[in-house]
Design a protein around this nucleic acid. Structure first.
Lengths: 143, 143
DNA sequence: CTTGACCTTCCCATGATGGGAAGGCCTACA
DNA sequence: TGTAGGCCTTCCCATCATGGGAAGGTCAAG
């Protein structure tokens, strides 16, 4: 199976497959005489595993941990379970941050008349000291 | 006021102030004879405006729009109000995505015994076809 | 034999931010 | 006057995950 077919079968772009190989996330595959990468079904499973972990919001680093645990036959499920809460906490923190932003924005948009007066509470708030209701803590990682 | 003081007063790092200048988000300030940037109070207000917009999750591009509206004396508040809902929708979509991830992870972590058996529903789910309850749509921007 | 669809490597871009080097300037203190 | 240190300047590099695209090799169908 060439990289294009592996990409098709796994849903991971060829570009990303090569990148994952480059950073050592996946093993370098065999090559044909013409230097083409050849993938077996096993490798496609690995790629799908990676894709799914990414879709659940795990970083590539976290994904690598999960992948090793998956491939380590002597793994314990406890070790895996430890990874989830950390990630859940991280997600919930970011969700709360964003909900704060939404609340502030809704408040401001609601107050903003939407007419042609040049006074706008949204801009006034952005310019001001930031004590409008619905305030959220900064410390954004630009979610 | 030097860049360090402007940074202190606005909460924007000197590095970022220079960057904002470089990309044209803020105007190049005056320079002293020794080539130091000099900022007036007005510029600090602009920096604080930017900082607050960023803390509400607006991208620099969106922030530029808001900034122009703020500085445009003939602006209408309607024009500003139009910017908020788009951003709110975007935020809410990302929140929903992340909540889906959390739900899936919680379900999986709950099922996972946490003992020493090598069977773990989290890994099994990651490896599988992804039809576990709490499923969310991919299309992640790695929130 | 040509055409087009693959594959290869290599470089560059994104967005927002930080790190750090190399060098200039200024102030305080001995 | 010398020096130490704390600012400032520009310039380059790194992050994270991904995509774009160029230049060139290979292969299969017509």
């Amino acid at each position: 199976m060439n990289i294009g077919q592996a990409s098709e079968a796994s849903g991971v772009s060829a570009k990303m497959i090569r990148y994952y190989e480059e950073i050592g996330l996946i093993a370098p595959p065999a090559r044909t005489g013409n230097n083409y990468r050849v993938y077996a079904t096993d490798q496609v499973h690995v790629l799908r595993f990676i894709k799914r972990a990414r879709s659940l919001g795990f970083s590539l680093e976290e994904t690598e941990t999960l992948l090793k645990l998956w491939q380590d036959k002597s793994r314990t499920s406890a070790a895996v379970k430890d990874v989830a809460p950390t990630h859940i906490n991280d997600l919930e923190r970011r969700i709360a941050e964003m909900q704060g932003m939404v609340k502030t924005l809704k408040t401001l948009a609601h107050c903003c008349g939407g007419d042609h007066r040049p006074d706008c509470p949204i801009l006034d708030d952005l310019a001001g000291d930031g004590t409008v209701s619905g305030e959220n803590q900064p410390h954004i990682h630009r979610a």
